[in-house]
Design a protein around this nucleic acid. Structure first.
Lengths: 344, 344
DNA sequence: CTGGTGTCTGTGAGCGTTCACAGTAGAGAA
DNA sequence: TTCTCTACTGTGAACGCTCACAGACACCAG
């Protein structure tokens, strides 16, 4: 019954020409229906739609791209080493959110993993060749030059997280790091903690800097003296959280709380505290940041600052598409929220 | 000094025509150089390559695809619910491996997440429209009809893990589940354990079935009676591992070992054992499966069966490209390896 | 010298779409 | 009526590439 195409082979798909013939109109009219339907009579539009359904027509994106110059696809560029991609579920959440937001616009997402310098160069060339209309960039060490490079090449770009230099205007979407950190430290203070240690993020990134700034501000406001022995920095990896907590325990054994700048690092810190025989939350309260899967999986479950990742990815896509459409770069800052669990 | 294209705008990139003019040859010759360089004189080839370097020419893939009918891109299709994608690092490893293997062939990877039925339908239509040359399919519940559907549409396809039905020939790459399970159970027996429980994978998948089969075989061979109270099944999620272990502890409190069919489930099992006051590995030895990041992060670190994910992804890409090139579907089974850590 | 063979090269056509333009028909205004 | 305006439609020309073909040239055998 079905006109199956022979084993394995694909039949030639119908073209806009076939649809036009079927509907009794011209290619131009079909094209107009396909692209918004302006200046098309209702009768013609109906005939074309019927013909599309009947023939099973799907637009050939290559032919379209050839003439429009757009690829109607965007790249998701992750400039992180493999191990970070493997261990941090935040990337999956962002990836999934962006894919879905793009799907609503019928735009495919090309995954670009640039862990090494070679890959970075290859991918940069691919992008600047115009194979994608824009790029969603995820990179924690925002010092990397790839954003600048792409901007200079005129590629629409949205970064996840605040970029470091402000040399050229680049769009970004970020959570309110400073405010989130303030909430967490206030929460720890409200529990009666005064010797609050911090494992910050990398200090060559605004995210790392801002969370640390929030921490110091609130302590100062509360009249608690800043003790530099209570502050170390990590790189968001689990291992660096563990090492950081260990160092803090050595430098300041009397600490009674720990604010760790990511959930993954916080899990590392839990391991270190456990090994040192400190009970959480009885002896030490621990607060994380992100509210990723890692927070609920931790034992005890982590009190943390929720970053609205679903909104982050949606906004990234929105801003990118706007920029592809010709609008100016934009910055979006989203509010965070304190989520209380068992670790405080 | 550099002829920068004005703010934000992209200049029209050089075409094959520009290269031909620059090199003093025809379009045809340039095209031949681009596609393997057969039937081209060394002098012409050198001139063309110099012209390409000078002009910064990059092929326009849309124009090429329009005439060749190939898209020179492949899709990575994940038919799993979001939560699974968020919690299981195995997906990241596969994704990364495939992306890199494809990059070596200059083929971009389109990420397709089909967690819901709607998404699945949309994506199937996209694929069958010929927008990708082939599909790398990752799906744990291999009962889902998407593989069949795509095969029937003549789309080259490689599945990760053995597919359930054998209705039509579909390529797949899988680890040797049965053999891996046998190794683990033998290892547990060698430690003197006799009451070995198992949390299997879903039994509507060959992976789940085969690991359970290996478990039973080895026990029988060793003269240990199979006790059905010692077997439950999960769905590879962490939560199901925790629930499974809890059920086993209730049904067979005397168990002295646990073989859990994935590392993630094994971590769940560790939580349940901890809560029940059983020490690992003193009271209960625990073995996982996969050797994912989850295994080393677990406390204690998990003894597990290593699946060679790097080779899996490389083979998936190899088989898919071969199939796109016209070869017949193929099945690849890769060996596993026992990795001893602290949990046994 | 003729004819074949093999290597290399240029040329026109065409892939399936969009876009600019020209053209038609009908309505309303002068 | 005639002219203008608007709504709609069809047509040729691109977009940048590959492919098939034909032609040129060199070489060798007969």
């Amino acid at each position: 019954m079905t006109m199956s195409n022979g084993a394995g082979g694909r039949r030639r798909p119908p073209t806009i020409h076939d649809v036009a013939r079927e509907a009794g109109v011209s290619r131009g009219t079909v094209s107009r229906v396909l692209n918004g339907g302006h200046y098309v009579s209702p009768a013609a539009a109906e005939a074309v739609n019927a013909a599309i359904r009947k023939t099973g027509y799907v637009v050939n994106r290559h032919a379209r791209s050839l003439i429009t110059g757009r690829s109607d696809s965007v790249g998701f560029l992750l400039t992180e080493p493999q191990e970070r991609f493997f261990e941090d579920p935040n990337f999956n959440v962002l990836l999934s959110g962006c894919t879905q937001a793009l799907a609503a616009h019928d735009i495919p997402l090309l995954l670009m993993l640039a862990g090494t310098k070679d890959e970075r160069r290859r991918i940069t060339r691919y992008i600047t060749a115009g194979h994608v209309d824009g790029v969603l960039l995820v990179s924690s060490h925002s010092g990397d030059p790839v954003a600048e490079e792409l901007r200079e090449a005129g590629v629409p770009l949205v970064q996840c997280g605040k970029p470091m230099g402000l040399r050229s205007k680049v769009s970004y979407v970020a959570a309110d790091d400073r405010d989130g950190a303030r909430d967490m430290v206030r929460h720890l203070l409200s529990l009666g903690r005064r010797r609050i240690g911090m494992v910050s993020g990398p200090l060559d990134t605004p995210g790392g800097v801002d969370r640390l700034a929030g921490y110091k501000e609130v302590l100062t406001e509360a009249g608690v003296e800043i003790d530099e022995r209570l502050v170390v920095s990590g790189d968001y990896s689990r291992a660096s959280g563990e090492a950081g907590a260990e160092r803090l325990l050595a430098q300041a054994p009397d600490l009674d709380a720990l604010f760790v700048a990511s959930d993954l690092m916080a899990r590392g810190a839990l391991t270190a505290l456990h090994r040192a025989g400190r009970r959480v939350p009885e002896d030490v309260s621990v607060g994380g940041f992100d509210d990723s899967v890692a927070a609920t999986e931790a034992v005890p479950a982590l009190t943390t600052i929720r970053q609205p990742y679903d909104r982050v990815s949606a906004e990234m896509v929105r801003v990118l598409l706007a920029q592809i459409g010709g609008e100016d770069p934009a910055a979006v800052i989203l509010p965070t929220e304190l989520v209380k669990r068992d670790s405080t």
